[in-house]
């Protein structure tokens, strides 16, 4: 996971990996062989990189079902997509009830479920999650972290940005601390959790 204060450049890192912003220098390697900075966003997605954007960014005018279909856009085989979406709707029963509603009309928690499901439909290898708990009630946040763990356990890598540092550090294996665009600390999550400055800034001091 990546932690850092507002404006540290966390979302910018994610957008750079996705190809939505072009870094002025440096390179981004995926699986040690794909140079992402040379690719367009749709090509990067095809390598197996998916996204849960900050603030969800669903297509509010599309139905829940169509949001999920767009999540699987690269799969041209309709039957395969229907099957994958079927699995998602089983996993998220709340969404099954709302499948024909426009996504803009859902509650924040439901929208976050759609955002997670949308990221999963294409069967990615890596999901970039930008503050998946943003604006959610504590009980829903717990569900989201449960899901993140589950997704990760199913073999999908996750790079997560979170303001809910305490909970995120429990889920994550490795953490990076970002300050104005630079990685200033990185290490196993439990070490970072005990780091002096991290405790001070993000975990509300010692206790």
């Amino acid at each position: 996971m990546i932690l850092g204060s507002n404006g540290a450049g966390k979302s910018t890192i994610i957008k750079s990996i996705l190809g939505l912003v072009k870094p002025s220098r440096g390179s981004i390697l995926f699986e040690g062989e794909h140079e992402l900075t040379a690719l367009a966003p749709h090509q990067i997605h095809k390598l197996g990189i998916s996204w849960v954007p900050e603030g969800r960014q669903l297509w509010g005018t599309l139905t829940v079902y169509d949001n999920l279909r767009m999540g699987g856009f690269i799969e041209a085989d309709d039957a395969k997509i229907s099957q994958r979406i079927g699995e998602m709707l089983e996993r998220f029963p709340r969404l099954a009830e709302r499948r024909d509603q426009v996504a803009g009309s859902l509650s924040g928690g439901e929208q976050q479920m759609v955002a997670l499901a949308r990221a999963l439909v294409s069967g990615p290898k890596l999901i970039l999650m930008d503050e998946p708990s943003l604006g959610l009630a504590p009980i829903v946040i717990r569900d989201v972290f449960e899901l993140v763990k589950e997704i990760n356990a199913s073999g999908i890598s996750i790079l997560m940005v979170e303001q809910n540092v305490r909970q995120a550090l429990k889920v994550a294996k490795w953490a990076y601390l970002l300050e104005v665009g630079r990685v200033v600390e990185n290490g196993p999550s439990d070490e970072i959790a005990n780091n002096e400055s991290v405790r001070e800034i993000f975990l509300g001091g010692r206790h």
Partner: peptide
């Protein structure tokens, strides 16, 4: 249609559409 949906997806959020594999 698949492309038609992509049309609406780009209309609303071009970046997200691109990040989900739509060749704009």
């Amino acid at each position: 249609t698949r492309y038609g949906r992509a049309t609406r997806a780009i209309a609303e959020r071009p970046d997200v559409a691109a990040a989900f594999g739509v060749d704009v």
